[in-house]
Write a protein that binds this DNA or RNA. Sequence first.
DNA 1: GAAGGCGCTTTTTTT
DNA 2: AAGCGCCTTC
Length: 821
Amino acid sequence: MTLILDPDDPAGWREAQPAASGGPSGSRLTDGLNPEQREAVEYRGQALLIVAGAGSGKTRVLTHRIASLIESREAWPSQILAITFTNKAAAEMRERVEALLGEGASGMWISTFHSACVRILRREAEALGLSSTFTIYDSADQRTILKRIIKALDADTMGFTPASAQAKISKLKNELADVESFARNANMNDPQEVMFLEIFRQYTRRLREASALDFDDLIAETVYLFRAFPKVAALYQRRFRHLLVDEYQDTNHAQYSLIRELTKPVTRDIVEDLDAHGILVQSMTDASGGIPGASLTVVGDSDQSIYAFRGADIRNIVEFERDFPGAKVVLLEQNYRSTQNILSAANAVIQNNFDRKEKKLWTADGDGDQIVGYTGYTAHDEAQFVADEIESLHRAGVAYRDIAVFYRTNAQTRALEEIFVRSALPYRVVGGTKFYERAEIKDAMAYLIAVANPLDELALRRVLNTPKRGIGPATETALASFAEQNGLSFRQAMRAADGLGLGSKVTAAITGLATLLDEAAAMLVPTPQAIAAGTNAGAAKVSDVLVFLLERSGLIDALRNSRDPQDETRAENVEELVGQTKDFDRENPDATLVDFLTQVSLVAAADELDDASGTVSLMTLHTAKGLEYHAVFLTGLEEGLLPHQMSASEPGGPAEERRLFYVGITRARKRLYLSLAMSRAQFGEVAVAMPSRYLQEIPEGLIDWRQSPGMATSRGGTRPRALNSRPGQGGAWGTRDRDLERFSVTRADKPKTEWANRVTGTVRDNGDLTLQAGDRIRHVDFGDGKVTQVTGEGTKRVAHVSFDTSGQKKLLIKIAPIEKL
DNA sequence: GAAGGCGCTTTTTTT
DNA sequence: AAGCGCCTTC
């Protein structure tokens, strides 16, 4: 028996695989794969690009590839670094690899870019002059800091907003630019640019002083680390022999650079240095005495690139072969997810993006059902259609969890939620306003952060007067300037507040808070033996520290005793947070507070998905990437929404929006529904909406329009049936006068497919029908009535009508199903 | 320093 | 429609 040693896990002795048992072509891991998939699993070389169309089984290929590397003893689990798009995908991939291997595969790094970088950065923080307990700032934190800087600099007078500065800084960091490099290239004659430089400089300094990194820093700082410290880089270059990157089309320049750094060979002199430090390098070196670069596998589909707005560079995948000469390319086109009708629609749409490599998805599984289309008069009508169809699917045996509703913007959930609640449909909004973004949760988290990272001024200032302690802005500023003048941290200034000459009550409040935080910090210190052994034994559990902080600070009592009725919910939320820390403690017995904070910072929207939930999932098209459902509803397919208004001005915007539509379509396995509304409320005002241009791109015969944009134009011919007069819905609609969206819905009893592509762009249009107070009108559903008032302008003119039998309504004149009498 | 009220901007997508 | 910031008043 031969034993071989896992170079990074002394406990990892195992029996070597007898060479005869098949090697990489061992059939178990390639059984049931098509030839291309098999090739992607078995290819061995420096660089492999797997162009994986939607639903082509790329996760299967990736997991089988990893399992095959490990099973054939070409790699130890610890030599694998796999990058996925979400933590959930990472956890799934790990499970599947372990299931394939029939054993645990600890030591594998399967995580997101951000998680992997945090892990590296905490380990190597010292080299960068960071605390290993550095805080991760989210967008809201960034914004708070930028708001303060902009205000202090009066930069808003030059047109700077926190959002604009944030976007610009993020963009720079994604390109690996820092303050110095920006300053070198800046046009110092442009006052705008000089001001931005100052904002950027102060922002960077504040984060640095707080020992904090923003999301973009996590990647960029890791690249800087590797570039500035080749020996540190070598540790990781030596360790990770196989890099696998999923969703490669959505990597940005910083992430690309990180991949490049990690796959660089280690030179001979550094290898010798590692060797001298007792790091195992034997049998890893090549003829030159160095360690060759790791092998790289990337998986992606340029048609699914939807993150240009955060710096994703489609060229990374398009130019992969040029970047990595000798790279092998495998194309996966056979789809195992969707029906041919769905794929044909997807192919037809994406074909309109020029400048792409031709790729056609196909399936051997047959056409399947027609795609269903529907045009509602309002967002509520559209939502009602979705709810009705979901119910009918459910009655036909489709589980709620196999159904998803997608939309372009988070704001669109409102109408859907209203109708779903009313219909008693179990649903869950994935992402959107996240639990951890609620103010009371951020408050509680700020206590924990302040304890974990005493340098974090942002967290300290957040808790300073939460709950109310009588410490106002004036005191806060006094503390801050005292700190600055004396070269102290904010926290030190708090401890020394006695010497500031503030009122005795305020002073006691400040020093009391400082003491509380110090006591909590003391709870977290492990035993000396544990510290020596590098474990966390003896440290208080996260949940205990949190409860201690909540009780002693008075935060929880303040919420419970408040007379604001909303504070009751807030108290419950905080209690739920306590529950979550308890779960965390249970699941991660040796984890630290910093581990908890890291995990919370890096949860992605899709991580919240609970497969066992038994609810319909609502999410944005972006969140939907990588997921699949039996039935998918794509809603709000209107100009201005998809493509979104804001994308029009961006280069490549409309093409990216089309890819977003493509991503949405290809999530569906069996049933696809496309819907839109003829009018939509925006900024509190109702506006006329036009069908999305992308709808035209789908061949006529593929869609069964239950109510088409074309039909909505022609008034005659179909028997109108008002949804809101349906039994069981009695009167719930239209009872509130302020409700502007009470247009009727007509719905053909029989499916009609008379809508042809050319009709797109037309909705019911009453032209320049002019109404004024006193006019009599007839409405398709509400009957006759008298106009009492006309408000608004242009296409947004609204008639206030008093109907003879249906009461008061407000109608959008341009599209309401009305005629003048 | 706290609380309440008014008026203004806001919505693209996310780790 | 709603949340935020600024203002006034207590």
